[in-house]
Amino acid sequence: MLPVAPAAERNKDAILTALRPIVARCRRVLEVGSGTGQHAVHVTTALPHLLWQCSDLPASVPGIAARLAEEGSDRTPPPLTLDVAMPPWPVPAATSPEAFDAIFTANTLHIMSFAHVKEFFQRVGELLAPGGVCCVYGPMKYGGAFTTPSNAAFDAQLRAGNPESGIRDFEALDALAGAQGLTLEDDIAMPANNQLLIWRRAAG
Rank of each mutant, 00 (worst) to 15 (best):
M1N: 07
M1R: 14
V4M: 00
A5N: 15
T17H: 10
A18I: 02
P21D: 08
V23R: 03
A24I: 02
E31S: 04
G35H: 06
Q38G: 09
V43D: 00
V43L: 15
V43F: 08
T44I: 06
Q53C: 11
S55T: 12
D56A: 04
P62N: 10
P62A: 12
A69D: 12
A69T: 14
E70Y: 03
A85P: 01
A85Q: 11
P88D: 02
T95I: 02
S96W: 02
A102P: 03
A102Y: 02
I103V: 15
T105K: 03
A106C: 14
H110G: 11
H116A: 14
V117I: 02
K118G: 08
E119H: 15
F120T: 06
R123D: 09
C134H: 05
V136E: 04
V136Q: 10
A152V: 03
F154Q: 04
R159S: 04
G161L: 05
G166N: 10
G166E: 03
G166L: 06
I167Y: 08
I167P: 07
I167Q: 05
D169Q: 11
F170C: 05
A172N: 06
A175N: 11
A175D: 13
M190T: 10
A192S: 15
L196R: 07
L197W: 12
R200L: 04
A202D: 14
